[in-house]
Design a binder for these strands. Sequence first.
DNA 1: TATATTTAATTAAACGTTTGTTTAATTTCA
DNA 2: TGAAATTAAACAAACGTTTAATTAAATATA
Lengths: 213, 213
Amino acid sequence: MDKRETIVTTAMNLFGQKGFEGTSVREIAAGAEVNLAMINYYFGSKENLFESVVEYKSAFLKGIFEELVTNTSLSQMEKLDIVVDSYIERMFQNPQFHHLLHRELSLEHRPQMKEAIAEILLRNFVSLKAIVQNGIGSGEFNNVDIELTIATLIGTINHLLISGIMCRKILQKSKNFNPYRSKKLKERISEHLKNLLRSHLLKASPQKNKKNI
Amino acid sequence: MDKRETIVTTAMNLFGQKGFEGTSVREIAAGAEVNLAMINYYFGSKENLFESVVEYKSAFLKGIFEELVTNTSLSQMEKLDIVVDSYIERMFQNPQFHHLLHRELSLEHRPQMKEAIAEILLRNFVSLKAIVQNGIGSGEFNNVDIELTIATLIGTINHLLISGIMCRKILQKSKNFNPYRSKKLKERISEHLKNLLRSHLLKASPQKNKKNI
DNA sequence: TATATTTAATTAAACGTTTGTTTAATTTCA
DNA sequence: TGAAATTAAACAAACGTTTAATTAAATATA
């Protein structure tokens, strides 16, 4: 792997685990097995490195739902099913990066960094909003609170996976249970959210897809 | 106010805004208008101060739903309504502290601190679980995924209020909109969650409480 | 192709700050 | 008079960053 890339990936993992201020440049250098000075040589400063991490790693969730919006062969509910599974998939693939993003959003310094992250997340939000809006417009969905419905979708996943310890406690799992490696948990979250969205969005009717516990 | 208390409150606000490592002891001393050495005099170390903050400030959300569980004059749905409003109220009253708690949960160092925080949050989780469980047992509720339903409830609120910037963008509000000061937002979240929980938990029937936008 | 020259990459060491913490002297108050 | 509270100053360690010297690679010249 390219040396710059090694540094960025190492930094992402450490920032994700211990936060920006909680991670020293020396740790990153050691983790990436490069000389300390190489980091400033390549990135200029620790803060620039952080920006590079966000820029580089956010590529894999930038505008991922945009073509889904314009798709005409799927119902809006089917689209939301895909959104659910796709978001879960990404969360499981790179939880450290999601932790990093949401943690940075909750901090009050580095406003320009917050702004950049908010813009990245907002793009996907706008896509989801369009899907729900179309569903309401066509009569497929109930007239729900669009923004908060999306907050529920994203918030459920984030909340559950923001901490291994908390997740284990909530789900009453043993210490060797790794939520980010559990295919069963993935499916469980997926099913819960799909059920939830159906009962919330679809007009009262014989409920489908209800097979729980 | 007591001097120890001033330090704890100042520390909580700064930790909440800028994180533990992002806040210096000197900043806390300046904010609390006490001499730098007083902090180590009272608390021994910065980390001890952090533990004091969590311990002291978590009093106001420790076991808040426990008597609700044993209450017999309310339906389980009515209890959940109270849970929703109560949790929103606390979140709005002290968002900094919630940020601090959830941020610390997402970090991988200081495992004993994570453990302590997880235990605090778990107590309330257990209460909510009992309420939903009772509802299912009595036939009032559908046979939903209990743990994930609670994760949805808490996760929606957390996600929406974890960042002023993100909240403004999501809700398309102007820069001078302060989500933590908006009574309207409070009511909006409350109504969304109550609707959501009703459609998810209650057996299919003419839906109540549906007055949206 | 072989050699000289220039540019880029890499290194160990040191830089000046800031960090959390401690000391030792002083003040406050019971 | 004695214990507790408060202070300014200093402490060593860790921090992000820079320097200056060296090695590696690329380019140009013959």
